[in-house]
Amino acid sequence: MNIYRHEMRMSLRSMLYWTTGMLVGLLFFMMMFAAVSEEASVINLIVSQFPSEVVRALGLSTLDLSTVLGYYGYVFMFILLVASVYALKIGISALSEEIRAKTADFLLSKPVSRNVIVTAKALSVITLLALQSAIYSLGAFIIVDIITGQPYDKTVFLLINLSIFLVGLFFAGLGLLLSVSIKKIKSVLPVALGIVFGFAILQMLNQSLADPVLAYLTPFAYFDIARIINARAYESAYVISDAVLIVSFTLLTYIIYRRKDIPSV
């Protein structure tokens, strides 16, 4: 419990910065909603001139930019990218930051087992991601409500926003696993950016090719916004795939970290 408290104290502020950044980005994009929704027919006309593969890759084929949720869903794809970079970053940092800051000797010479350390750190990561989703959802709700002033489906809105948490867990879990598998990560953020954009490109490919197998390879495909808007629910196959991967990443992290040599300072 003391490790968990310590972790939270160390990383709460950075989480607030990232979440504020996401909300500021949202505010900026939502201010253009009125203009975009008015000109939606013109935009649709321009878009229809593009090759259909490109339109699908950009996610423009399924979302109606003239509606609140359609437009929000499009903007949300970019916000989700930022949230994913944050999730991957804290996942990678949780265990490896102690080695980079050379505080691992301090922590691991205390009477705690490796498992307890992983548990405490993983719990703090989950808490941070949950707080991030909660704060973002609340902020997004206020921003969208005030700026658009139009009614929209609140359940769908919540389902869209909750995918930040579910995708975040995937990246955090992946980050934990990477941090114990790779010998030394010198700088976390560039690695996190690279990996998240790799998955985003995979998602563009997936949207363009509409390949059912490819979709399982990228968490961005698990919570497709157009399908959430239509079905008002997630698709269970993808939720299960997400959960299985999160649990596997975490279990592997426990197993590898148990036997990991802590490099000398």
Partner: peptide, 14 residues
């Protein structure tokens, strides 16, 4: 380790 006090040669803290 409950009963051990350890002082490393290089000290790093938060």
């Amino acid at each position: 380790r409950r009963q051990i006090g350890y002082l490393p040669s290089e000290v790093y803290y938060y």
